[in-house]
Design a protein around this nucleic acid. Structure first.
Length: 492
RNA sequence: GCCCCCAUCGUCUAGUCUGGUCUAGGACACAGGCCUUUCAAGCCUGGUACAUGGGUUCAAAUCCCGUUGGGGGCACCA
């Protein structure tokens, strides 16, 4: 039997990282089993429809490398894969259940339903439909009138389903609501559509968040009403925010697109997500895996049962690890859009700028946790800096006069270099420190603070080379002016 | 309120099925050190966990029950 799994988002928002982790599991399972991943769009809620959600869903999945075999834009013979294009099927199936006496029309008003639920809540009972229309004679609620169709769930007995990871899970039928199958706008609810589609599309395994467990018995009741065999259920634990609650919009930047914009690499995010709630085990202590390794090692039976908190710290570390192992040219290509977005370089990159960019890459590579980190790390190369206050140019155990002398000697040295490169300047600068009776760190610190405008920067000489001789000398000059002014005003 | 799921370091986890090799292993984060022009990276060292009570057993992180704690669900949303 070919494994067929699906991811069925609804275009009511942008895919967030919790749902995507579940897609990662589905994808891994499908790839490993040589099965198919189907992407189906569940757009049956017209009131919450978000116009560009579909495109963002597609882009997010593609960006993460989560390709699907069938579904949206990829026909596999089971289409259409967009539920709003299958309305006639759901209507037909709902009517079929009415004909079999397993469903009924209900014209209770939303207000009345709310009253009923409220009263039950007040009595400490599980709020559900009281079945007023369930006992009406066939035809009492005319098909032409505004109404919904509900499933007639038995009041006696229990409904049990098997979860691959947790074993049998049972629910009292008396606590299962007479679920609405077809809404008054003639669109199906999730419950009807998902059962009909999963069955008709030959879905073999349903891997989804365990927040769906409580509604699964409704699904089972429907399968029984239709006389179909349910798929194998694999409920995976939820992804929690740092506060221990189900990860969602309230946790801020959780959409896949935001991770992209923040400078996370798709491979790193994928690797991280795969390890959230799953581990290879058997003594395997590896953390960084290629996709191929993940596909080979993945095992649904090893998915954890308890929810996992999403750790930005660990993701940052992993992203940094991926960045460090990148080829410099590849990293440069990834970095350029971030420089452009920050307005540091034009989108049409002048060729004379390329050597500078190439020079910068090895300087920042091991310092980046995210691609976006490159902006604060290198902005001084592309734009004018704000001079630091005089104190920044006077290291401990030094006077302003000594600093001025150090700056002047540095200027002299740098102006005299034949080639303004990191290799050319390092030796002489170390010599200079010695001559001035300074530690290398003291002299370099002054220069760093003057030229980069920061106390933390990439390696100094490469930074100077990137800034260029002319601007380096000018900034040193400005630092000197700051020092002179402070001496005059008696600050230092 | 009712129903369901879950329970090893702060976090992600290995170990649990097939009790002994676990004075509980790894990773992230944290602390200290080395390296060092800053910051990183790298290397070394350190602290921190089997929720709790009762069983079963020669022996329990591992099996059973209760308790507690956490999470989720109870729509004409998915």
């Amino acid at each position: 039997m070919t494994v067929r799994v699906r991811f069925a988002p609804s275009p009511t928002g942008y895919p967030h990282i919790g749902n995507i982790r579940t897609v990662v599991f589905n994808w891994l399972f499908a790839r490993q089993q040589n099965g198919k991943l189907i992407l189906r769009i569940e757009d049956t809620d017209r009131s919450r429809y978000v116009a560009d959600a579909l495109k963002v869903i597609e882009d997010s999945l593609s960006w993460l490398g989560l390709d699907w075999d069938e579904g949206l834009k990829r026909d596999g013979g089971y289409g259409p894969y967009v539920q709003s294009q299958r309305l006639h099927i759901y209507r037909e199936k709902a009517e079929e259940l009415i004909a079999k006496g397993l469903a009924y029309r209900c014209n209770c008003s939303p207000d009345r339903l709310e009253e009923v639920r409220e009263a039950m809540r007040a009595r400490g009972e599980t709020p559900m439909y009281d079945g007023r229309c369930r006992i009406k004679a066939a035809g009492e609620v005319p098909a032409e009138e505004l109404h919904v169709i509900r499933l007639k769930v038995p009041h006696e007995g229990t409904t049990t389903f098997h979860d691959l990871l947790r074993g049998d899970i049972s629910f009292e039928n008396a606590l299962i609501d007479d679920q609405v199958l077809l809404k008054s706008d003639r669109y199906p609810t999730y419950h009807l559509a998902v059962v009909v589609d999963d069955h008709m599309m030959g879905i073999t395994h349903v891997l989804r968040g365990d927040d769906w467990i409580p509604s699964t018995p409704k699904r089972i009741q429907l399968y029984q009403a239709f006389g179909w065999t349910p798929p194998i259920y694999i409920h995976v634990p939820l992804v929690l925010g740092p506060d221990g609650k189900k990860l969602g919009k309230r946790h801020g930047a959780t959409s896949v697109d935001e991770f992209r914009r923040q400078g996370y690499l798709p491979d790193a995010l994928f690797n991280f997500l795969a390890l959230l709630g799953w581990a290879p085990g058997e003594g395997d202590e590896q953390e960084i895996f290629t996709r191929q390794e993940l596909i080979e090692k993945f095992n649904v039976h090893r998915i954890n049962l308890s929810p996992a908190v999403f750790s930005y710290d660990k993701l940052d570390w992993m992203n940094g690890a991926y960045i460090r192992q990148m080829d410099p040219q590849e990293l440069l290509d990834c970095l350029i859009p971030f420089w452009v977005d920050a307005g540091l370089i034009p989108s049409e990159i002048p060729t004379e700028l390329l050597p500078t960019l190439r020079l910068l890459v090895p300087l920042v590579q091991e310092r980046l946790k995210t691609l976006r980190d490159v902006i604060p790390l290198t902005d001084f190369v592309f734009q004018e800096i704000k001079m630091l206050p005089a104190e920044a140019f006077v290291p401990k155990k030094m006077t302003a006069e000594e600093s001025i002398r150090a700056i002047r000697e540095t200027q002299r040295l740098l102006s005299g270099l034949v080639q303004f490169t990191a290799e050319e300047m390092e030796g002489p600068m170390r010599e200079l420190a010695k001559e001035l009776g300074l530690k290398a760190g003291q002299l370099f610190g002054i220069v760093r603070n003057a030229v980069t405008g920061k106390e933390v920067s990439p390696p100094l000489f490469g930074s100077l080379q990137a800034v260029g001789r002319e601007r380096t000398l000018r900034r040193l000059e400005q630092a000197e002016q700051v020092l002179l002014a402070s001496i005059e005003s008696g600050e230092v």
